[in-house]
Simulated assay, not measured.
Amino acid sequence: MSFRLQLVVSAIALTLANASFAQPSADKPERIRGTIQSYSAGTLQVHRRSGETVSIAVDDSTGLNAVKAVQLSDIKPGTYVGAAAMPGADGKLVAKEVLVFPEAARGTAEGHYAWDLGANSSMTNANVDTVVQGTSGRDLKLSYKGGNNTVTVPANAPVVTLIPATRDELTSGKRVFVVASHGAGAAYKGLQIVVEKDGVAPPM
């Protein structure tokens, strides 16, 4: 696993482990989702989905990765995944996206956590025990320390894995997922950046 990939896995582990993310504070990383406005001289301007534009400092310690689409059929028993999901009409978990972790990252932030992709959304980082084709998609039976659940992955849910990226890819119009700490004033310090590549945007 590359150094950059190790960094992004570490930061994702940090944010996944932080289940009480709903109220950001000065000592708690924040997830920023949006579109790049500009990148220059170590400052990334991101227009957030919520409407405001924020400044994020990028330095040599900032991890930088992109995502690559993989097939749902690539998920087999024994794969380690992170599945963001929301309850369906029947109460069962339906995936909004699935991140397939590299094997070297097995065990990253293992467990079931609150997430921030919508009301009642959750993230499950777990081992895939079984894969069953259902009427609404593939049902992944997931097990983690202390529990297990089943997540249905619809055919249209993004399934991605992480790949290295460079600062040259931080161009205007690209979508990003940023893990950042609160910096001085209204600015942020980028801990990890996952940037769109070849039309594949970070779905997490």
Score class of each variant (00 low, 15 high):
residue 1 M to R: 03
residue 3 F to E: 15
residue 6 Q to F: 01
residue 10 S to H: 12
residue 11 A to N: 06
residue 14 L to D: 14
residue 21 F to E: 11
residue 25 S to Q: 12
residue 25 S to E: 15
residue 25 S to F: 05
residue 26 A to T: 12
residue 35 T to P: 03
residue 37 Q to P: 01
residue 40 S to M: 10
residue 41 A to Y: 02
residue 42 G to M: 07
residue 47 H to V: 10
residue 50 S to I: 04
residue 55 S to I: 05
residue 57 A to P: 03
residue 57 A to H: 13
residue 59 D to F: 15
residue 60 D to L: 08
residue 61 S to H: 13
residue 63 G to D: 03
residue 66 A to I: 00
residue 66 A to P: 05
residue 67 V to T: 13
residue 67 V to R: 04
residue 72 L to Q: 14
residue 79 T to A: 12
residue 82 G to M: 13
residue 84 A to H: 14
residue 85 A to L: 02
residue 86 M to A: 14
residue 87 P to Q: 12
residue 88 G to S: 10
residue 92 K to P: 00
residue 96 K to H: 06
residue 101 F to D: 03
residue 101 F to W: 15
residue 101 F to P: 09
residue 102 P to Y: 00
residue 111 G to F: 09
residue 111 G to L: 11
residue 112 H to R: 08
residue 113 Y to K: 04
residue 114 A to M: 05
residue 114 A to T: 05
residue 114 A to D: 08
residue 114 A to V: 07
residue 117 L to I: 11
residue 124 T to P: 06
residue 126 A to T: 02
residue 127 N to G: 09
residue 127 N to T: 11
residue 128 V to F: 07
residue 128 V to W: 09
residue 130 T to N: 07
residue 132 V to E: 15
residue 137 G to W: 14
residue 137 G to D: 06
residue 139 D to F: 04
residue 139 D to H: 06
residue 145 K to V: 05
residue 146 G to H: 01
residue 147 G to V: 11
residue 151 V to K: 09
residue 152 T to L: 01
residue 171 T to V: 08
residue 177 F to Q: 02
residue 177 F to Y: 13
residue 178 V to G: 10
residue 179 V to D: 08
residue 179 V to Q: 07
residue 182 H to P: 04
residue 183 G to N: 03
residue 192 Q to R: 09
residue 192 Q to A: 15
residue 197 K to Q: 13
residue 199 G to I: 05
residue 200 V to D: 00
residue 202 P to M: 09
residue 203 P to I: 01
